[in-house]
């Protein structure tokens, strides 16, 4: 019995579709039958069971310019009700990579299995969401080997298997929720017995590796330095006027410290949902040490205290949001000429 054929729609840009270069970068999305451009060689590598039924192409400026463009492209892709969506390879081309990643991400959100191909330095790698991204070469001169990697990855993904990093997967692996046959307690006892039996590799949760953070250089002259106070202890003005979330925060806030030398308990309180806030509410300086910071400022130990403090609630916060807060805080503080920050962590 022959396995059912896998229907593929291939996404490429205007250049590889033969429409034109920069002059045609604004061209809107178009669907054509079958494989074109690099899709022809890809089809040969895919063999008989995986079939490119259509190609959608679009200008890079158009595709990477707006979220609506991605939805337009997706609508064309879905016309053929594909089993697999392949985008690229985009190599190191930034706009093309973004478009490939976003098309694949949007297709995945609609329940389609998707695969985008690009170089690991392409900014699109971070935009792939839940889609799988596979490594390609630096430029079109590496088209041959890139298509070979892509075709092999397509066969794996089309078969319902996750792509591993060894097989060329880029970006962070995704965890998906499934319903196991047996409850966690029973599986945990199985795992204990496996480990007792000498299987030291068995686990359902691969250990995460946290990103390496390169420490900032040491501050050279504290007496000239602008210092900021930041916290994930959810200290906000009384009544929480901006409604900071007490758990799973999705945003951060800033509050002015201009002309304020201390934080009165009746004017500030913590709304953190992860610990008892009794002590913070008795004395807000237990979370944001403004009193002592002002003292140090007056003594000239620092150049000056930044005019506002930044705050979020670090409680069940996703690492993605926490990473974003960190990036945004660093950028915001740098713009304000802050060169050092004390982050109080609860």
């Amino acid at each position: 019995m022959k396995a059912p054929m896998t229907k593929i729609v291939h996404y490429i840009n205007q250049f590889f579709a033969g429409i034109g270069g920069e002059d045609a970068a604004g061209s809107p999305p178009v669907r054509v039958e079958g494989a074109i451009g690099p899709g022809r060689r890809l089809q040969q590598l895919l063999g008989d069971d995986l079939h490119i039924v259509a190609t959608v192409h679009c200008g890079d400026d158009y595709a990477s310019g707006s979220a609506d463009a991605v939805q337009e492209i997706l609508a064309l892709v879905r016309q053929d009700d594909p089993d697999l969506v392949i985008a690229g390879p985009a190599f190191t081309s930034g706009r093309y990579g973004l478009a490939c990643a976003r098309v694949a991400a949007a297709a995945t959100e609609h329940g389609l299995t998707s695969l985008a191909a690009m170089h690991e330095d392409n900014p699109g790698v971070d935009e792939g969401g839940a889609a799988t991204i596979v490594r390609s070469g630096v430029a079109a001169r590496e088209m041959g080997s890139s298509l070979e990697t892509l075709a092999a990855a397509a066969a794996i993904v089309a078969g319902g298997e996750p792509l591993t990093n060894e097989q060329g997967r880029l970006g962070r692996p995704r965890r998906q929720v499934v319903r196991a046959d047996r409850p966690a307690a029973a599986r945990a006892v199985d795992l204990v017995l496996a480990r007792l039996g000498g299987d030291l590799e068995a686990t359902e949760v691969p250990l995460p590796r946290f990103e390496q953070v390169t420490p900032a250089a040491a501050v050279e002259d504290l007496a000239q330095t602008v210092l900021a106070l930041v916290t994930e202890g959810a200290l906000v003005p009384e009544g929480n006027p901006d409604r900071l979330e007490s758990a799973r925060a999705t945003r951060w806030l800033r509050y002015s410290l201009d002309g304020i030398d201390s934080l009165a308990p009746d004017q500030y309180g913590s709304i953190h949902g992860g610990f008892s806030t009794v002590w913070a509410n008795e004395d807000p300086h237990r979370i944001v040490p403004l009193d002592v910071a002002r003292e140090l400022e007056a003594e000239g130990a620092i150049g000056r205290l930044h005019g506002e403090y930044l705050v979020t609630a670090g409680n069940g916060t996703s690492v993605a949001n926490a990473r974003r807060f960190g990036v945004e805080w660093a950028a915001d503080l740098r713009r304000s000429e802050v060169r050092a920050a004390i982050l109080t962590s609860t």
Partner: peptide
């Protein structure tokens, strides 16, 4: 302590 990083009640 977690509830009071810059204090000690």
């Amino acid at each position: 302590g977690i509830p009071y990083p810059t204090g000690d009640p």
